[in-house]
Design a protein around this nucleic acid. Structure first.
Lengths: 109, 109
DNA sequence: TGTATATAACGTAATATTGCAATATATTAA
DNA sequence: TTAATATATTGCAATATTACGTTATATACA
């Protein structure tokens, strides 16, 4: 059906999957890496930096904003984007505890 | 076009996005959490544990296997699945360095 | 007021994902 | 060999994603 059965999973599992999904595209990885390096940037910077159309970049920014990973403030003609520190912290905690949950295995199959 | 322009991104960005994509579904998060807890399991265990059809679980397992996050060994009638320690280590390194790359911002927008 | 600039929103085409029933495959036990 | 068990594969329908041209909106400046 193309429709994820969210109701059978926990809120934590759904939230983690949602955050990871927002990160799971090379363009959005690149956008976030640029934001980490530059601290702030505007849509036009990313259009130049990556090789994608303005409409596409804008859409990716929207997705990142929707899950709260970035925030944008209108600054004159443009919109200044930056990482949302609180969501990023949550991401760090959730992802780290998920990945670190695996402590290797004595024996495997 | 619905087709990601992988060629304009670095191999690292594509690989990270690929790994994250494999994790970006609550069913696959649940499968991995179960695997972490139980160390090993078979497809049937997951069908009981989660509320999804056998074909659906099998498909999610295939995706996790395709990116190398898990491995399966035929054991009589069933297939014993477990986490692939090497890929998991790579995942840990890549994801950690990506997320930890952000050191908060003095001022944001 | 008019014009340039920057971004968002809309519409569309191509492709990918999700979930499952049905079927195929492969191993074990009788 | 036959039956039972466990998975994988195939095919399908519904939905989601990706990318971009075009258009709308909103601010700044002459």
């Amino acid at each position: 059906m193309g429709l994820t059965k969210s109701e059978i999973f926990s809120a934590e599992q759904n939230r983690l999957a949602q955050l990871l999904k927002a990160l799971a595209h090379p363009a959005r990885v690149a956008i976030l890496q640029h934001l980490i390096k530059a601290n702030t940037c505007i849509c036009g910077d990313l259009v130049d930096e990556l090789g994608l159309a303005q409409a596409t970049i804008s859409q990716h920014l929207k997705e990142l904003k929707n899950v709260g990973l970035i925030q944008g403030t209108i600054e004159g003609v443009s919109v200044c984007y930056c990482i949302n520190p609180e969501t990023w912290k949550l991401l760090d905690q959730e992802v780290t505890s998920f990945i670190q949950g695996y402590k290797g295995a004595a024996s495997c199959c």
